[in-house]
Amino acid sequence: MNFKNLREYLAWLYFQYLLITGIYVLEPWEKSIFNSILFTAIAMVIYTSYVFVPIHVRLALEFFSGICGGQPESTVALMN
């Protein structure tokens, strides 16, 4: 497919989205219901990952540094 501009390409992408999900055949209000449900879900996923992923990453880092980083210090202490 050759596209003249980005707008045309986006329109084509949206058309593919309509066809693959099957909402091409739905009435406009049904389309908007489907779109809003889908985008709400996606937005929630993004928001949740934004809020919780950094916390989990920090916790994981602390956990692993607790395992790997804590050990040599104690051996040093024993040596002394």
Binding site: I20, T21, G22, I23, V25, L26, E30, F34
Partner: peptide, 13 residues
């Protein structure tokens, strides 16, 4: 898989 998904969505509606 996508075809079944499409039919699934249409069935829900």
């Amino acid at each position: 898989v996508l075809t079944y998904m499409g039919y699934g969505i249409l069935t829900i509606f």
